[in-house]
């Protein structure tokens, strides 16, 4: 047998209730492979609370706290304070929240946790909409995407506003470590998680998390779509440690964004002019990232 390239230990149990092909489910599996069993996870209202807890069971092989959607950041500050008070230093505290619960509803709690320098990891799994309640747009929904609240038809052409730069907001708080990860690249994902696990102070992950029903593509395409997102520059893989940028995957020239957009029903209404504008923006963002890497 070929050597395993990621840890064998499974802390995500089968029998959970994610949709077939759910990348957020795979993201948790990889996250816990990197963090190991001495972890407490705090999860707000989002698909992941439902995935984890068909009552009276849990799909997590670690302790889990279920918290209100706006309070993931506050809850992990509290968990760390409790662990400190009880004298349990060797535990990793993880907040695992959706994009709606992070970029919109829980933004101030995230900011508070980063500003307090809480010794914990906050991970946002970004499926780019409020999926658990049936695909409503969030601040993290990209420009042009169809959702049930940004429909396609007369007077509406998908989401009219660009995606919120959550990494930018987090980096403005100067965390100890922040990185983007994508379950289509499991080795890069787990390596970054292991690195973060061994640091102390506020840490952040932005997880790319394709969702077959919400993005309208067949369930077997989740990994392919993730690969395209990174290889065309829509979701570059990088990390920032002590203010230094490092791009962890550079595959030569970027692929055209069309290959990523055309694989998903939520973008099927976009025409050539739309995609040309997106291409220009993605190329500019990528060049900026390359510049940041060389300057920091």
């Amino acid at each position: 047998m070929a050597k395993l390239t990621i840890p064998a230990q499974e802390l995500l149990r089968s029998g959970h209730s994610a949709c077939p092909g759910c990348a957020p489910a795979l993201a948790m599996r990889l996250m816990l492979k990197g963090l190991g069993p001495r972890t407490i996870v705090s999860i707000p209202a989002c698909c992941w609370t439902v995935i984890d807890t068909p009552y009276p069971t849990t799909a997590l092989g670690v302790a889990m706290l279920d918290n209100p959607i706006e309070s993931t950041g506050a809850s992990i500050s509290g968990l760390r304070a409790a662990a400190d008070a009880l004298g349990i230093p060797d535990v990793t505290i993880l907040g695992f929240a959706g994009d709606g619960g992070t970029a919109d509803i829980g933004l101030q709690a995230l900011s508070g946790m980063l500003e307090r320098r809480t010794n914990a990891i906050y991970a946002m799994y970004d499926n780019e909409a409020y999926m658990n309640t049936g695909v409503q747009r969030s601040g993290a929904t990209p420009l042009g995407a169809w959702t049930t609240t940004t429909p396609v038809g007369e007077g509406s052409h998908g989401k009219a506003e660009p995606k919120k730069d959550v990494m930018g907001i987090v980096l403005a708080h100067h965390p100890v470590y922040a990185a983007t990860v994508n379950p289509s690249f499991p080795e890069d994902f787990v390596k970054k998680v292991e690195k973060a696990r061994d640091l102390s102070g506020p840490r952040f992950f932005h997880i790319f998390a394709p969702c077959p029903p919400g993005w309208r593509y067949p369930s077997d395409q989740s990994i392919e779509i993730g690969k395209r997102a990174t290889d065309c520059g829509v979701f570059p893989l990088y990390e920032v440690m002590d203010g230094h940028y490092h791009i962890t995957r550079k595959g030569g020239a970027l692929k055209p964004v069309r290959e990523y957009f055309q694989a998903q029903g939520r973008f099927s209404h976009l025409g050539d002019a739309d995609l040309d504008r997106v291409q220009a923006q993605v190329t500019a963002d990528w060049n900026r990232l390359v510049r940041l890497e060389s300057e920091t």
Binding site: A18, G21, R29
Partner: peptide, 25 residues
């Protein structure tokens, strides 16, 4: 995403048929 594979003694994949949801990944 469902942890529906294990391995046999020679390292070949074995489907954990109770848990595979058939996503096709």
């Amino acid at each position: 995403p469902d942890d529906a594979f294990s391995f046999d003694a020679e390292g070949y994949p074995v489907l954990r048929t109770d848990y595979c949801k058939g996503c096709g990944i």
